[in-house]
Design a protein around this nucleic acid. Structure first.
Lengths: 241, 241
DNA sequence: CGCCAGGTTGATTTCGCTCAAGCAATGTGG
DNA sequence: CCACATTGCTTGAGCGAAATCAACCTGGCG
């Protein structure tokens, strides 16, 4: 049969599980086809850059699978992990909308599969379909809130509290097997990345973890985390949420 | 003449100088009328709150005159100054768009005059006029960039550098009388507010200022600032911009 | 006047960073 | 299969920037 089989590496947008949860859920049939035709599927090895801070925005990326981290470097090579992206996440929309260079670098934390759509296609779609713009508007509003909260947290909370808060977030995102009042889960991130997310150095995080273990609030073994009492661990955390 | 003179307390949107520079520049005649009819003009004394963190968003505020600060408090009464707003600024749009409570409190730093428009009116307009949504989209993208940069700056720069950067921003915003290579200006903010903006305590800022004076880079006297050499002051500042 | 808020200064402490070394797990080439 | 680099994590010691606590000064303002 001359028909090509469903290309292993190139998933159709119609079949994409992430689409419904992303901004693209408002695309009509026709636009979706346009989108599907225009897209390029790319794969990145863990550690590879999807785009760099300072680059002009060429278009938008949709994370199909894998984990992405957004980093910002300064002159000294010092870097901050500004955020992370899960499958379904749209990368680089901010830059496209403002028409300014990327403010962060996007780096594949694990092997990633990403769909790329050129900016002119997106701009066309935005012009045609106001609902899409509205989706991005809500998305931007959400990101803005998170960013504000993050800033405030960095200014007021200790490393310890920020880390515990991170654990709380990870628990919500990466389903944890509940066991009574306790919890156990596999952390999706290395110590280094967790340290960067919290805005500190690995050494400090190691000490913080040690301290938490001493207090009997949790056990860390490699990426395995066991918490006897969720209540106890998250108790001191007075969040503005 | 029976014609009323331009009402001192209630400016017409048609005459508003700020409109052209704000998101509202894309409104057509009809919408502008709608806007004008729907708006309420409010005045706030310095120190008064326009809205509080955690409040549901009732609508959007346009700053007509005065200076507004966005603050976030935590349990200890600790507060961070998350940003400031000048005339023309639209307040509270983020909350309206996400449909979630305000994440910051808006406080009048000086006496303020503010126009308020109910959320249902805004939502209607957004639905009718996609261009308005696009304006807000760009605005959100810009705010998001700023917030990200701010976060990163807080994590990597010293208080000293952040403060010098603040001075640079203030210089650009509040026209300073240039005098050769130097500069002199009146700071629009109290020490407390500048400290909060930089994410530190007033004591630390006082010391920082002292240090800068010792180095002969600037003179602070009350709110008067004199800088002999702009070059020298801003030299050490390696900004990612 | 005395009061009070805003600002400065000093003394002390603390949190987190830096530098440096050791260790365990993983990988790589001979 | 072993010697070895490499990379990620932990631990220790010391340091430094900034927070905290506390006093004091200043300039309005009732």
């Amino acid at each position: 049969m001359p028909d090509r089989p469903c290309q292993a590496s190139s998933v159709s947008c119609f079949a994409c599980q992430n689409r419904q949860r992303a901004e693209w859920c408002v695309l009509d049939e026709e636009q979706l086809q346009q989108f599907d035709r225009a897209k390029t599927v790319r794969t990145y090895k863990a550690g590879a850059f999807i785009y760099h801070e300072g680059d002009e925005c060429q278009g938008i990326h949709c994370l199909e699978s894998g984990l992405v981290s957004f980093r910002k470097y300064d002159a000294d090579g010092h870097d901050t992990l500004v955020g992370m992206g899960n499958p379904g996440r749209t990368l680089g929309y901010r830059s496209l909308l403002e028409g300014s260079p990327h403010v962060t670098s996007a780096e594949a934390t694990t092997d990633c599969q990403v769909c790329f759509i050129d900016r002119v296609v997106i701009r066309e779609m935005l012009a045609q379909n106001p609902a899409l713009g509205y989706q991005f508007l809500r998305r931007a509003a959400k990101d803005l809130r998170r960013s504000t909260e993050r800033y405030h947290e960095g200014n007021t909370l200790s490393v310890r509290d920020r880390f515990v808060h991170l654990l709380l977030i990870l628990r919500n995102k990466y389903g944890a097997t509940a066991e009574g009042a306790g919890l156990s889960m596999t952390l999706p991130l290395s110590r280094q990345d967790m340290a960067a997310l919290v805005g500190t150095r690995p050494e400090t995080l190691a000490r913080t973890i040690h301290q938490i273990e001493d207090e009997g609030l949790a056990r860390f073994s490699g990426r395995k985390l066991t918490v006897p009492s969720v209540e106890a661990l998250f108790a001191d955390l007075e969040l503005t949420a």
